[in-house]
Deep mutational scan, measured.
Amino acid sequence: RDEDEKEKIKEALKRGNEDKAKEIAKRANVSPEEYERLRKEAE
Score class of each variant (00 low, 15 high):
Lys22Cys: 05
Glu7Arg: 14
Lys26Gln: 13
Lys40Gln: 15
Lys20Ile: 14
Tyr35Gly: 00
Glu5Cys: 08
Ala28Asn: 12
Glu36Asp: 10
Lys14Arg: 15
Arg37Met: 08
Glu7Val: 12
Asn17His: 13
Ala21Glu: 01
Lys22Thr: 07
Ser31Met: 06
Asn29Ile: 03
Asp4Thr: 12
Asp19Lys: 13
Lys20Gln: 14
Glu3Pro: 11
Lys20Ser: 09
Glu11Val: 06
Glu33His: 06
Ala25Pro: 01
Arg39His: 04
Ile9Phe: 02
Glu34Val: 05
Glu33Gln: 09
Ser31Glu: 06
Arg37Phe: 06
Ala42Arg: 03
Glu41Gln: 11
Glu41Asp: 08
Lys40Tyr: 12
Lys26Tyr: 08
Lys14Thr: 06
Lys14Asp: 02
Glu43Ser: 09
Arg27Asp: 07
Pro32Ser: 10
Lys22Ala: 09
Lys10Asp: 02
Leu38Glu: 00
Glu5Ala: 15
Ala42Leu: 09
Ala28Thr: 07
Glu23Tyr: 05
Glu34Gln: 04
Lys8Leu: 13
Ser31Phe: 03
Ile24Asp: 02
Lys40Ser: 12
Glu7Leu: 14
Ala28Asp: 03
Ile24Trp: 03
Glu41Asn: 04
Glu36Met: 07
Lys10Glu: 02
Lys8Trp: 08
Lys26Leu: 13
Gly16His: 06
Glu41Met: 09
Lys14Met: 11
Val30Thr: 05
Lys40Asn: 10
Arg37Pro: 00
Lys6Gln: 08
Asn17Leu: 14
Ala21Ser: 02
Arg39Val: 10
Arg1Val: 15
Asn29His: 10
Ala21Asn: 01
Ala25Asn: 01
Glu36Lys: 03
Ala28Glu: 05
Lys10Phe: 06
Glu43Asn: 09
Glu18Trp: 09
Lys40Met: 14
Lys20Val: 15
Glu36Gln: 06
Glu36Cys: 12
Lys8Pro: 02
Asp4Val: 12
Arg39Asn: 03
Arg1Leu: 14
Asp4Ala: 11
Ile9Cys: 03
Arg27Leu: 11
Glu36Ser: 04
Leu38Met: 07
Asp19Gln: 14
Glu33Tyr: 05
Ile24Arg: 02
Lys26Ala: 13
Tyr35Met: 07
Glu3Trp: 13
Asp4Arg: 12
Tyr35Ala: 00
Glu34Gly: 02
Lys26Thr: 11
Lys22Met: 13
Pro32Met: 11
Leu38Asp: 00
Pro32Asp: 13
Arg27Thr: 09
Ala25Asp: 01
Arg27Phe: 05
Asp4His: 11
Gly16Trp: 02
Leu38Cys: 03
Gly16Arg: 05
Lys40Arg: 15
Glu5Ile: 15
Asp2Glu: 14
Ala25Val: 03
Asn29Val: 03
Ile24Val: 05
Arg27Pro: 02
Val30Gly: 00
Glu33Cys: 07
Lys40Glu: 12
Lys8Ile: 06
Lys26Met: 12
Lys20Arg: 13
Glu18Gly: 06
Glu18Val: 14
Asn29Gly: 15
Pro32Arg: 10
Glu5Gly: 06
Glu23Gln: 10
Arg1Lys: 14
Lys22Ile: 11
Asn17Asp: 15
Lys8Ser: 11
Lys22Leu: 14
Asp19Phe: 09
Glu5Thr: 15
Pro32Leu: 11
Lys14Asn: 05
Asn17Ser: 06
Ala25Gly: 03
Ser31Arg: 05
Ile9Tyr: 01
Ile9Met: 03
Glu18Asp: 08
Glu43Thr: 10
Leu13Trp: 03
Lys14Ile: 10
Lys10Leu: 11
Glu11Gly: 08
Leu38His: 00
Ala21Val: 01
Glu11Gln: 11
Glu34Asp: 08
Asp4Cys: 12
Arg1Pro: 14
Glu7Trp: 15
Gly16Gln: 04
Ala21Pro: 01
Asp4Asn: 12
Arg15Thr: 11
Asp19Met: 13
Ala12Glu: 11
Glu7Asn: 12
Glu11Cys: 13
Glu34Ser: 03
Tyr35Cys: 02
Lys10Ser: 03
Arg37Asn: 08
Val30Ala: 02
Asp4Pro: 08
Arg1Met: 13
Glu11Arg: 09
Ala28Pro: 01
Ala25Met: 05
Lys6Ser: 09
Glu23Cys: 08
Asn17Gln: 14
Leu38Tyr: 05
Glu23Phe: 04
Lys22Arg: 14
Glu33Ile: 06
Glu18Tyr: 14
Lys20Asn: 07
Ala12Gln: 10
Arg27Trp: 05
Lys20Trp: 13
Glu43Tyr: 15
Arg39Gln: 06
Arg15Asn: 14
Asp19Asn: 12
Leu38Gly: 00
Ala12His: 11
Lys10Gln: 02
Tyr35Pro: 00
Arg27Val: 08
Tyr35Thr: 00
Glu33Asp: 09
Glu36Val: 03
Leu13Ser: 00
Lys14Phe: 05
Lys10Val: 07
Arg39Gly: 03
Ser31Gly: 12
Glu43Cys: 09
Ala28Val: 07
Pro32Glu: 11
Glu43Asp: 09
Lys10Ile: 11
Glu43Gly: 08
Ile24Tyr: 04
Lys6Met: 14
Arg37Ile: 08
Glu7Asp: 10
Ala25Phe: 02
Val30Asn: 00
Asn29Cys: 05
Arg1Glu: 13
Glu18Thr: 11
Ala42Thr: 07
Ile24Pro: 01
Leu13Val: 04
Glu5Asn: 10
Val30Glu: 01
Asp19Ser: 12
Glu5Lys: 07
Asn17Met: 12
Lys20Asp: 11
Ala12Met: 11
Lys14Gly: 05
Leu38Gln: 01
Glu11Trp: 05
Arg39Ser: 06
Arg39Ile: 06
Ala12Ser: 06
Leu13Ala: 01
Lys40Leu: 14
Lys6Cys: 05
Glu41Phe: 05
Glu18His: 12
Val30Phe: 07
Ile24His: 04
Glu11Ala: 11
Glu41Ala: 09
Asp4Gln: 12
Glu5Val: 15
Asp2Pro: 13
Glu7Pro: 04
Glu23Asn: 06
Arg1Asn: 14
Ala12Pro: 00
Ala25Arg: 03
Lys8Val: 05
Lys20Gly: 09
Glu3Thr: 12
Glu18Asn: 07
Leu13Tyr: 02
Arg27Ala: 13
Lys14Pro: 00
Ile24Lys: 01
Pro32Tyr: 10
Leu13Pro: 00
Ala25Leu: 02
Asp19Pro: 09
Lys6Val: 10
